[in-house]
Design a protein around this nucleic acid. Structure first.
Lengths: 200, 200
DNA sequence: TTTTATTATGACCAGTCGGTCGGTCATAAT
DNA sequence: ATTATGACCGACCGACTGGTCATAATAAAA
């Protein structure tokens, strides 16, 4: 019988190649020809792995978040104290924005696209799914900190989780555009101590 | 002699029309044909007002920030207390993200483009210019609050300004993508009281 | 070796892109 | 009335787009 290729694995591979190009030119301005050329394959083969260009976007969102989550998980594993977890989340999240700048750019590109499109396309739902899960996870950590009396009981866990997520994203964005070289370690720990102090 | 039109005014007019389209499809996927058609003019005329498509982007950034600044200024004028100014900045900034959603989408689109392009194009410099000025302005307000003893003296004004800006942008973005209908007034005032409490 | 199902390909398609150009038109100065 | 000039236009250009398809290559099964 014919040779068998792992379609899902190749999808991921192609998506990773494509992300490099998306980070440079944006999704809309990156052509299938460029992608397939970079991936060392013929243009026609692209459609053996993806239904169309938007299907590649679906795969891209998955790769994006799984890489981001893996990198972040690596940085905050083995921490038990919930307050410390929150602090590291802010700090390492902001630092990841520097280290994985390409990922951030693609993230923003997809974000814009997702908000512009009024239809509920698949990649858009996936994006929402991941963000909601991040928010829930952080919310749980906040609750744990409350249980330990590190954060006052009547604080709104959901609002705090939203704040932290928004802060991380916002900081990454501003640092990227301003090429702001202020020490992210110091700034993020400054911010966190203010927040924690205010939440006591 | 022929009739004379105010080129600069027409540039602004065309840019405003274009922004509606940019918010729907993004800059890259919006064609000159569409823009000129919506603006009720021939395609050729476009090049009487703009050198090329990127020149339209320069004008767009200016219109974008002048509209945003005007809307924000309207909401926080007549406030003397610096702490109140900061609070309104966060709250009204986040609310503006809802009201001027189109502006936010275009903002993100330009942002992505500006970060992707490694060259220092004009629109990119303008974007940086406005953001730096926002940051400086907020920093000044923080200093005023310090002088009144509302914020502790050793707090880093610049870091606080960055935090506020990042928060506003981050909140707007997350609300857009999650269609998060939680009460922005309550959440932003919650966040602010935490921040203020932590900065005392 | 032959068969056969799958993978891989690039020429090709209809359509769109940003940008140019020659030329028309309206108007204001003469 | 004539003339000069900027405003305005859409046909046209070469390059490129996403997507299709007939055909070629591959490699396991017969």
């Amino acid at each position: 019988m014919p040779k068998i290729v792992d379609k899902q694995a190749r999808r991921k591979e192609i998506a990773k190649t494509a992300m490099n190009l998306f980070a440079q030119k944006g999704f809309d301005s990156t052509s299938i020809r460029e992608i397939t050329s970079c991936a060392g394959m013929g243009k026609g083969s692209f459609y053996d792995y993806f239904k169309d260009k938007e299907d590649l976007l679906n795969e891209t969102v998955h790769v994006l978040f799984s890489e981001w989550s893996a990198a972040l998980a690596l940085k905050i594993k083995d921490i038990d104290d919930p307050v410390m977890q929150l602090q590291r989340l802010l700090q390492e999240g902001a630092k990841l924005g520097d280290e994985l700048e390409q990922l951030m750019i693609v993230y923003i590109d997809i974000w814009r696209r997702s908000v512009s499109q009024k239809d509920n396309s698949e990649y858009s739902k996936t994006l929402q799914f991941f963000l909601i899960n991040y928010k829930k996870a952080i919310s749980t950590i906040v609750d744990a900190a409350k249980a330990q009396g590190k954060i006052r009981k009547n604080a709104d866990s959901s609002a705090i989780a939203t704040t932290l997520l928004a802060l991380v994203d916002g900081l990454c964005l501003h640092r990227m555009i301003l090429k702001d070289k202020m020490d992210i370690n110091r700034v993020s720990s400054d911010i966190f101590s203010i927040l924690l102090n205010g939440m006591k």
